[in-house]
C-alpha cells in the first residue's frame, strides 16, 4: 500500500470549500443534494482509508497472520506501525461518534415527538403548544407533525401563518430531516466536513421557503412571514457570539433571496468549481479503491498464492 491511502483523508480539505462555493450558485434543492451527497461520499472514502490503514497494521500481528494462514510475513507496503496505530485510534473515535450521533438523534426525536403530542392541541398536521415564546418547527415521523407555539401564532397575521405552515410542510414533504441525519453521521467521520453544516441548513431552509412562496403564491408574503417570525423570536439580550460585525446571518439572506430573486431563475454554476469538486470526489473514491486493491494483493502474496 502506498500514498493512495492518504489521499481520501486529506482531500476533504479541498473538496469542502469547493462544495460550499458551488452550493451558493445552485438552486436550494440542488444545493442540498450536493452538500449532503458530498459529505457522505467524502466521509465514506476517508473511513475506508482509515480501515485499510488499521487493517494493514493488524495483518502484522501474529494472531491475525495465523488466522489468515499467512505463509510469509506481509511485505511491500509502506504503512508503518505508528501510522496503523494512529489510524486504529481514529477509527475507534469515528465509530464512537457515529454511534453517539445515531443514538442521540433517535432519542431526541422520540422525546420531542412524545412531548409535543402530550402537550399540545392537535388538528390535521398541526400541534399547537401553549407557550408565549414564538417558535415553530417540523417534527419528522409518520406522519410528520408541525409544531407551533401560541406565541408564534399570535405574532403573525392569517396569511403569514399559512406561509409558515407551508414552510414546515415543505420540510416534512422534502424529508429534510434525512438530509440532516445523513450529514450528522458523515460529519462524525471527518472533522473538515463540519464546515458544510451551515450551508446545508441554509439550503434546506431556502428550499422550504421557495416551496412556501409557491404554496401561498406570493414571495413577498413568504418573506414577510419569515422576517416577522425571526424578529418575534429574537430574545431580548443579544447573544455575545452572534455579534460578529458586518456579517449577515441566514435569516436576512433568506428574506432578501425571496424579495429579490425572480422565481425559477438561478445563476449558472461556475464550471471550474464544479470540475474541482467532481475531481476531488472521483479521486477520493479511486484512491480508496486502489488502496483496498493493494492491501488485498499483499494479503494474497502473504498467503503464498502468487
Amino acid at each position: 500500500m502506498n500514498y493512495t491511502v492518504w489521499v481520501p483523508l486529506v482531500l476533504p480539505l479541498l473538496a469542502v470549500p469547493a462544495a460550499r462555493r458551488l452550493a451558493e450558485a445552485l438552486p436550494p434543492r440542488l444545493a442540498a443534494w450536493l452538500l449532503a451527497g458530498t459529505a457522505v461520499a467524502l466521509a465514506a472514502c476517508s473511513t475506508v482509508a482509515l480501515l485499510l490503514l488499521a487493517g494493514a497494521g493488524a495483518l502484522r500481528l501474529p494472531p491475525v497472520a495465523a488466522l489468515g494462514h499467512f505463509e510469509l510475513p506481509v511485505v511491500g507496503d509502506q504503512v508503518t506501525v505508528a501510522a496503523a496505530c494512529v489510524a486504529a485510534v481514529l477509527l475507534a473515535v469515528v465509530v464512537t461518534a457515529l454511534v453517539r450521533t445515531a443514538r442521540r438523534h433517535l432519542v431526541l426525536a422520540a422525546r420531542a415527538r412524545r412531548d409535543a403530542v402530550a402537550a399540545g392541541t392537535a388538528a390535521g398536521d398541526l400541534t399547537v403548544l401553549q407557550d408565549p415564546g414564538p417558535d415553530a418547527y417540523a417534527l419528522p415521523g409518520r406522519p410528520g407533525r408541525i409544531v407551533v407555539t401560541t406565541g408564534m401564532l399570535r405574532a403573525l397575521g392569517a396569511a403569514e401563518r399559512e406561509a409558515l405552515l407551508a414552510h414546515e410542510r415543505a420540510h416534512l414533504a422534502g424529508r429534510h430531516h434525512l438530509f440532516l441525519a445523513a450529514f450528522a453521521l458523515a460529519r462524525s467521520c471527518h472533522p473538515a466536513l463540519r464546515a458544510l453544516r451551515g450551508p446545508l441548513s441554509y439550503a434546506l431552509e431556502r428550499w422550504a421557503d421557495e416551496a412556501a412562496a409557491a404554496a401561498v403564491g406570493d414571495r413577498r408574503l413568504a418573506a414577510r412571514a419569515i422576517g416577522r417570525a425571526a424578529l418575534a423570536s429574537r430574545p431580548g439580550a443579544p447573544r455575545p457570539h452572534a455579534a460578529l460585525p458586518a456579517t449577515t446571518g441566514p435569516v436576512p439572506r433568506r428574506v432578501a433571496a425571496l424579495l429579490t430573486l425572480p422565481p425559477a431563475r438561478a445563476p449558472r454554476a461556475p464550471r471550474t468549481i464544479a470540475l474541482v469538486l467532481a475531481s476531488c470526489l472521483t479521486l477520493s473514491a479511486a484512491c480508496a479503491l486502489e488502496a483496498a486493491h493493494d492491501l488485498h494483493g499483499s494479503i494474497e502474496l502473504a498467503q503464498g498464492e502468487r
Partner: peptide, 26 residues
C-alpha cells in the same frame, strides 16, 4: 447541532446586525 438535526426549524437566532438588516428589508 443535534437540535437542528431533529427539528427543521423555521427561524434562527438573529444578531443585532441581522435584525437591523431584516427590518430594512421588510
Amino acid at each position: 447541532d443535534d437540535r437542528g438535526t431533529v427539528l427543521a426549524r423555521f427561524v434562527s437566532q438573529l444578531g443585532p446586525d441581522d435584525e437591523r438588516l431584516l427590518r430594512e428589508l421588510l
